[in-house]
Design a binder for these strands. Sequence first.
DNA 1: AAGTGGTCTAGACCACTAG
DNA 2: TAGTGGTCTAGACCACTTC
Lengths: 261, 261
Amino acid sequence: MAVNNFFQEPELATVADSAGVPLYRQVKRTLIRLIEGGRYAPAGCLPSESVIASSLHVSIGTLRRAVDELVHEHVLVRRQGKGTFVAMHNNDRFLFQFFHVEKRGLEVTQAHEYPAVECVSFERARASEDEAAALGMRTGDPVFRIYNRLKLSGRPVVFDRLCISALTFKGLTEKRFVDRQSTVYHLYQHDFGITVLRAQERARAAGATREVCKVLGVQPDLAMLEVHRVALTFGEKAVEYRISTIDTRHHDYVSLLSKRS
Amino acid sequence: MAVNNFFQEPELATVADSAGVPLYRQVKRTLIRLIEGGRYAPAGCLPSESVIASSLHVSIGTLRRAVDELVHEHVLVRRQGKGTFVAMHNNDRFLFQFFHVEKRGLEVTQAHEYPAVECVSFERARASEDEAAALGMRTGDPVFRIYNRLKLSGRPVVFDRLCISALTFKGLTEKRFVDRQSTVYHLYQHDFGITVLRAQERARAAGATREVCKVLGVQPDLAMLEVHRVALTFGEKAVEYRISTIDTRHHDYVSLLSKRS
DNA sequence: AAGTGGTCTAGACCACTAG
DNA sequence: TAGTGGTCTAGACCACTTC
């Protein structure tokens, strides 16, 4: 499990002596560069903390502080007795970090229900002005536009329209998308090496359009919840723009303010 | 600024040797008990880290770890060179920790706009079933029901209906509520010693009711965003139940998933 | 200059996991 | 039993604030 010939590239192994920046931040940047650069596969095990610390010529306390922050940001996962791993996007933890629709009723957090995803359409297109702005690209650049219907307890509840760069996700096909084993974000990570770290969401209410009525089977002008999400990876780079239209007659969009203890 | 006769109560000063619980967690619980018990006023300064550490017979590293977590949970605030303080709810930081309505447009986080609050009605009432469930009390218990209209750039955008226990907030009057200097949460903290630490929110879409039309001046059945919030203090105790109805034609409800770096 | 929090170190010991 | 992360310590030095 341990890797010996680890920090070979001198420029990566060296912690730059940037002015005023705390050492543990520099160590953190170094670790991010290594992860980002594909130095470790997702789910891969990092060398032990003592090995990394001595490789980078910092104390173990400093190394631990850098890792602490990366764990907090869901980039790494620690498992006592086993090692430190690159966070994966294929487990419950990560699914529900980004899926926040819950059946109405119990205020206490109940067991989450997995949505069943059906792909409604998959097309290559050119970025609209909005899409380009959200993804930091130019209008007309090639994108994939993927429309999904999500069912909870057998009833259609969410209409997801997502847009991703066809350059970033070169080689993606409808078949690969539909046949994926796990979540979309796991596909991004496993097949394209892109790890979604966080997302910004903006919610608003809007009447159901004809398209929404058709896909979700609701009556025209029903008040729907519309969530616009931009998913971000390292360096705050936007990788996905998604509009979710939610039938909130029996479900809520759940948000948690501030940290829990 | 420094307090000398600090840890007088032996049972508070002693860190219980609970089985298996890390020392820094026990220190954290001790600090919470002291804050909760009004040992320090809000905005009050704590003794220096070295003083607390030696008082509790733990190393400074352990004390710092406990304080780190409390800072992360917005219970304490550190100021280098000055000291550690109990977090206050009267600054921008805390206002916008709980107010998440933003004008549409720029995706980049723009300067937040302060809402202008008008009290529409203030009444003593008996808790409905929903209110009682949200606040952990019995149906029929006395509550205050306070309705506010919030304006942004002079236009009514949000209709807030909040419900709090009349027992917890004994002595609150419409005058005191309206004449408050700062935010509602600052009033809770300053006048009643209740610190709101976090909140749970559930959002849904709904057509405008007659009451909403009257207060916000919108046409009937316009799709509105409805946010149900339960605000919590120490020990996960619910202290406020609030329903915000938002006109999202020109504003969004903004949510941040996962941590930012 | 004195006092505060912020960083960094070096090492000890414990708890968990695997072979 | 060996290796991993988790906790705890004791002390040094730095950066910031106040007097």
